[in-house]
Simulated assay, not measured.
Amino acid sequence: MLRERAHDAREAMEAEYARRREDLGVRIERGRLVFDQRIRKRQREARQKFSEYVAAIRPMNVVTAPVIYSVIIAFVTLDLFVTLYMWICFPVYGIPRVRRRDHIVVDRHMLPYLNWVQKFNCVYCSYGNGVLAYAREVAARTEAYWCPIKHARRWEGAHEYYHDFMDYGDTCDFVERWAESRNRITEGRDAMRPIVVGRRKD
């Protein structure tokens, strides 16, 4: 199944990521990635001089910066409203809550080879993309509960639950399969497990 292949691909990526961390001299202490002192020293030496960094900034980057950073208003608002929605509604539907910390990860600012501007930008990008990933997961679980039907045309934005949705226009065992989709979400099963759908009535 597509989900099984996607799961295998993610496992392979995680294994490759772990191997590359070892090659970079990274170890895990209390759930945090830590570099050896020798590696940290080498990273600090690799830091670009701030004067060189500023000199390389294009004028248009400075002009557009306020527009980029103004989107923080949308990110914070989305974060707040999605969290409120989930905490209020998910218990009513019986849908397991999404762990926010699994999606909003802010840690790149701790890298010694980044200057303070780069660290600030990394925090901003991490938060923004994390909020979008968090909101997407909340929305995906909601869709799997309320409307598990595929679109008529190919959709590039498919989330991990989408492949188990019912085909567009397929009425076979419609009510039963809709109930199955809700059960998969409310029972909190691993999203990567194979799904057994209703038997076709030809």
Rank of each mutant, 00 (worst) to 15 (best):
M1A: 13
L2D: 07
A6F: 05
E11G: 02
E11V: 15
E14S: 09
E14I: 09
Y17N: 13
A18V: 09
R20P: 00
R20I: 10
E22L: 12
G25Q: 04
V26K: 07
V34F: 05
D36E: 14
F50T: 12
E52S: 12
A55M: 09
A56G: 13
L78A: 12
F81E: 08
V82N: 01
Y85P: 09
P91G: 10
P96W: 07
R99H: 09
R101D: 11
I104V: 14
I104S: 08
Q118L: 01
K119S: 11
N121W: 03
V123Y: 00
Y127Q: 02
Y127F: 15
N129R: 13
N129V: 07
G130P: 03
G130I: 01
G130M: 04
Y134L: 07
Y134E: 04
Y134F: 12
Y134Q: 06
E137F: 02
R141E: 05
R141P: 11
A152D: 05
A152C: 05
G157C: 10
Y161T: 08
Y162M: 04
Y162T: 12
H163K: 03
Y168G: 01
G169T: 01
V175G: 02
E176R: 12
E176I: 00
W178M: 09
A179P: 00
E180K: 15
I185H: 00
D190K: 09
I195Y: 15
I195A: 06
V196H: 08
G198D: 06
